[in-house]
C-alpha cells in the first residue's frame, strides 16, 4: 500500500489518540502493532481519505460534479474532456422549493448549469438556497447575479455580414421572422440580430462617409435593407429583374431557421437559383416549419439551408469552464459571456 504522507499519519494518530509512530508501523505492516490496532488505523485512514475528497468536492481522482437543471443532456465527450460528472438526479429545482435534506445533495457540486429558460424567481431561489455558482446556457435574464453563456447575436450578425462581403456579396438583406411565431426566449436574440444588422449597415454608411443622419433612426424599414418574409414574397418578381440582372451578389440573412427555410423555398418556387443568383443563410438552430399553400393547406417545409450559429457544445464547454474557474477563484465578474457563431450546413450561401 502506498505510504501516506507524514502529515496524514499525524492526523490519523490524533484521531485515534495514539502516537504517529504506531500509525506508521501499522501502515507499513511492521511488527509491534496488534492486528486490532492495525485494522483501526487502516479503517480510519480510508475514512479520512474519503472525507478529504468529499470536502473538496473532487470526487475520484480530480473530477468535479456539476448539477444540471433543465431538459438538455450534456454530451458525454464534455464530461471526459473536462473531468466533470454531470448530475441530473438532483431534486427537481424547477418545481419550486428545495428541502433541507435535499440541499445536502447539492453541496458536493461545484456549480449548476441551467440548460433551459427559467424565470428570474426560480433562479433567485436556487441562488439563495443552494449558494453555488450558476451558469445559464442559451438564455439571459437581467438582474440575477449569475453567469450566462449565449450565442452572440449582435456581433455575430456583423461578423457574418463581413464574411459575406468578403465572399463577394455586395448587397445584404435581412429577412425578419414573423413576430407572432417567435418564442419569448427567442425574441431577445432576434432583437440582437436585427440591431446587429442595423449597426453593420450604419457602420458601412459611416465608412463611405455618406451624408448620414446624426444617429440611426429608430424605425426599421425597408430602406435599411430589412424586410419581412411577406414583403419578400411580394417583391420577388420585381426584384428579380432589378437584382439578378444588374446587381452583383445579393444574400438574404434570415433571422431564424424557419424563415430561412421558407425564404429558400420561395426562391426555388420563383425559379431563382440558390446560391447562384441569391444566397440564403439562416441564424440559430434549424427549425421545422410549416409552409402554407395558397389553397389553404400546409406541408412541412424541408429546404436545407446554411445556418450561422454558435455550436451548442461550445456554449456548454464555455459554461463548464466558467464553473471551474469560479471554483479556482479566478473569474470575471458575473455576467453574460458571448460565443461567436460560424457558418455551417447546406450550401445555400
Amino acid at each position: 500500500m502506498r505510504p501516506l504522507k507524514k502529515i496524514n499519519q499525524k492526523a490519523i494518530a490524533e484521531r485515534l489518540g495514539i502516537s504517529h509512530v504506531s500509525v506508521s508501523n501499522a501502515l507499513a505492516g511492521r511488527k509491534g502493532v496488534s492486528r486490532e490496532l492495525r485494522e483501526r488505523v487502516l479503517e480510519t485512514a480510508a475514512r479520512m481519505e474519503y472525507e478529504t475528497k468529499q470536502e473538496s468536492g473532487a470526487g475520484s481522482a480530480g473530477w468535479s460534479e456539476i448539477a444540471v437543471v433543465g431538459a438538455r443532456v450534456i454530451p458525454e465527450r464534455l464530461s471526459a474532456r473536462n473531468r466533470v460528472h454531470f448530475r441530473y438526479d438532483l431534486p427537481d429545482a424547477l418545481s419550486g422549493e428545495i428541502g433541507e435534506a435535499q440541499l445536502q445533495e447539492w453541496q458536493s457540486c461545484i456549480g449548476i448549469l441551467v440548460t433551459q429558460q427559467v424565470s428570474a424567481e426560480i433562479l433567485w431561489m436556487l441562488r439563495e438556497r443552494v449558494k453555488k455558482p450558476m451558469v445559464g446556457i442559451g438564455f439571459f435574464v437581467d438582474g440575477v447575479p449569475m453567469d450566462f453563456v449565449m450565442e452572440d447575436g449582435f456581433h455575430g450578425i456583423q461578423a457574418l455580414a463581413r464574411t459575406l462581403r468578403d465572399r463577394g456579396y455586395m448587397r445584404l438583406v435581412y429577412v425578419s421572422p414573423e413576430e407572432a411565431e417567435a418564442n419569448p426566449e427567442e425574441r431577445s436574440m432576434l432583437e440582437d440580430r436585427l440591431l446587429g444588422f442595423r449597426r453593420d449597415q450604419y457602420t458601412r454608411l459611416l465608412e463611405k462617409a455618406e451624408k448620414v443622419e446624426t444617429v440611426p433612426a429608430f424605425d426599421l424599414g425597408e430602406r435599411d435593407g430589412i424586410v419581412t418574409l411577406h414583403r419578400l414574397s411580394e417583391r420577388l418578381a420585381v426584384w428579380r429583374e432589378g437584382v439578378c440582372g444588374r446587381q452583383p451578389g445579393t444574400a438574404l440573412i434570415c433571422g431564424d431557421g424557419r424563415t430561412a427555410r421558407r425564404a429558400a423555398r420561395m426562391l426555388k418556387v420563383a425559379g431563382i437559383a440558390v446560391p447562384g443568383e441569391i444566397g440564403v443563410i439562416g441564424c440559430g438552430a434549424e427549425e421545422a416549419c410549416q409552409e402554407e399553400w395558397k389553397d389553404g393547406g400546409t406541408q412541412a417545409c424541408r429546404e436545407a439551408v446554411s445556418m450561422f450559429r454558435a455550436d451548442e457544445e461550445q456554449l456548454m464547454e464555455c459554461a463548464v469552464r466558467i464553473l471551474k474557474e469560479r471554483r479556482e477563484g479566478r473569474a470575471e465578474p458575473e455576467g453574460l459571456h458571448r460565443v461567436s457563431g460560424a457558418i455551417a450546413g447546406a450550401d445555400t450561401i
Binding site: 432583437e191 440591431l195 449597426r199 450604419y202 444617429v215 440611426p216 429608430f218
Partner: peptide, 28 residues
C-alpha cells in the same frame, strides 16, 4: 456622440434594445 466612437455606437444600440423592449420610441 455615436459617430465619433465605435464603443459609443454599440452602447447606443444597447440603449435602443431596451427602449424597444419597453415599446418606447425615443424623442430625437
Amino acid at each position: 456622440s455615436v459617430r465619433t466612437s465605435a464603443n459609443v455606437l454599440e452602447r447606443y444600440y444597447g440603449y435602443w434594445k431596451c427602449m424597444r423592449e419597453y415599446g418606447i420610441t425615443p424623442d430625437p
